[in-house]
Amino acid sequence: MLRARGDDGTSVSDEALLSGIAAGDEQSALVFVRRYQRRLFGLAQTILGERGLAEDVAQEAFMRILRHAAVFDPRRGSVLSWALTITRNLAIDSLRARRATPTDPDSWIFTNLISDTMDPSDAVAASDAYSPVVRALALLPEDQRRAVVLATIYGRTAAEIALAESIPVGTAKSRIRLGLAKLRASVTVMGPR
């Protein structure tokens, strides 16, 4: 039986939890899973649009993280980014395996990140911590914003975006690149790099 012992581990760093997991400590694993299950499941659900599949993908992502906890390299970025990237790649594999299209116009992404009514001030209010990126995203022309989100979150290739949007591949490539360049400028100015 797995039980939290007293504290919820909120003060323990991600890196310390990964060390504990690598050493086979179930308590570290439990705290880690509780810390990130909503994020990983949320991303899987956002991409896949279906709870059952999202659970499968989030479970598999955690399994890989738990198994490979010992080899996490902080120079590659934060633990959250690492975990989200693993989840995203698995979700994309799952989509591709079923040849499914992720373009559900009711999904959170479409309403909040791609929608043509996205308002920079709303977006900034909604997500303070990442406001530079959200603001930059909101300020992109809608076609660039769609291309950027489809490529970064849904893993769509330029060719796939071109097909979906009925535009030449070169145009899709330049939309991704131009859009992402503006986001990078916002991150670079605000970020610690």
Partner: peptide, 27 residues
């Protein structure tokens, strides 16, 4: 890094009940 910054924007959603139990048992 820019791609990562966007992934972090996706929403947190509560997984189905029993998610953590099934996972830890499996692991």
């Amino acid at each position: 890094d820019v791609g990562d910054a966007l992934l972090v924007l996706t929403p947190a959603i509560e997984p189905p009940i029993g998610f953590e139990g099934r996972l830890l048992e499996r692991h």
